[in-house]
Write a protein that binds this DNA or RNA. Structure first.
Lengths: 156, 156
DNA sequence: GGTAAATGGGAGTCCTTTTGTCCCATTTGG
DNA sequence: CCAAATGGGACAAAAGGACTCCCATTTACC
């Protein structure tokens, strides 16, 4: 299917969570799992993978936990997704040219190529810092909503 | 996975094939299957689905076959893909808002929304007429290559 | 009418991927 | 040493993808 998997989705949630914390703060996987509705043991696998690629730093032993592996401003959404799902390939012919023997005269291939470039552009245009910032703002808006200062129907 | 399925890929091949034919020409499914390396029985299922949505017109009985259901210029790549794979949804939260209880303050959701719009733009920017045209040109280039007028290393 | 040639449709098979779980090893602070 | 944390391998259930089989239906032509 042309859709992000739960693995990728969960990874993004975890990374956004980490990005909202003050730099170098560590948090435990169980806490992330609880707050973002992710099965804990599964999230452990996911974070291990992120850790192997340097996107998160993990600390074992009592008092350990995980933190962002690099500065939030240097990690894009695409980084997280490709870490879990492998290189982006909207169509198999984009990574494995041998599959389609009609390249180089396949016009469809060119369209997929263009589509993939556009998708990459969007997915690399926001860093975790951006996403975390908006997330925090959004939460504050929500709190404001709860406080009744804004009507629930007001546009954000 | 974030990738087109074989079902969608085969459907595109078949539609491009139909679009290269003169208007209202019918061809048999077995012929398309043979020429484009698609399992015939499987392609029959795919074309049935395209037929149900009016993208192809099918004629049963001896001497029957299939043809384009509408003018090639009115059918986009997205039409074909969505016919086979359902509505485009890069992330589940785009079609099923209830899944993510953090909307409307989820910044990631907004990114997926933008990415999907861009992807739709590309996939709707080319009709089968465009693709068939380029396909024919490409084939002619290939023929020219075969004739030895151009070197195989010459850029197309 | 009968037969051959074409698409239509339901059911089912096989395989891979996804989405997890279980259990235990390893690390580390107190 | 013990409790608390991550790491890793094996495994399991469920879903989805990629087909096949069998037969029904339609139609042209003799």
């Amino acid at each position: 299917m042309l859709q992000l998997t739960m693995t990728g989705e969960y990874a993004v949630r975890a990374m956004v969570h980490l990005a909202t914390l003050p730099p170098d703060t560590t948090v435990q996987i169980a806490d992330i799992a609880r707050e973002w509705d992710v099965p804990e043991v599964f999230l452990r696998k996911i974070i291990t993978q992120l850790s192997r690629n340097g996107l998160v730093a993990s600390y074992r032993g009592k008092g350990g936990g995980v933190a962002l592996g690099r500065e939030a401003g240097t990690i894009t959404l695409l980084d997280v997704i490709e870490c879990m799902e492998g290189p982006l390939a909207l169509n198999a012919c984009l990574t494995n040219p041998g599959i389609c023997h009609r390249i180089p005269f396949c016009a469809v291939h060119a369209v997929w190529h263009e589509a993939q470039i556009k998708l990459r552009e969007v997915l690399t245009s926001r860093t975790l810092a951006d996403l975390a910032g908006h997330h925090i703002e959004g939460c504050q808006s929500a709190v404001t909503l709860d406080a009744g200062i804004l009507s629930p129907t007001d546009p954000l």
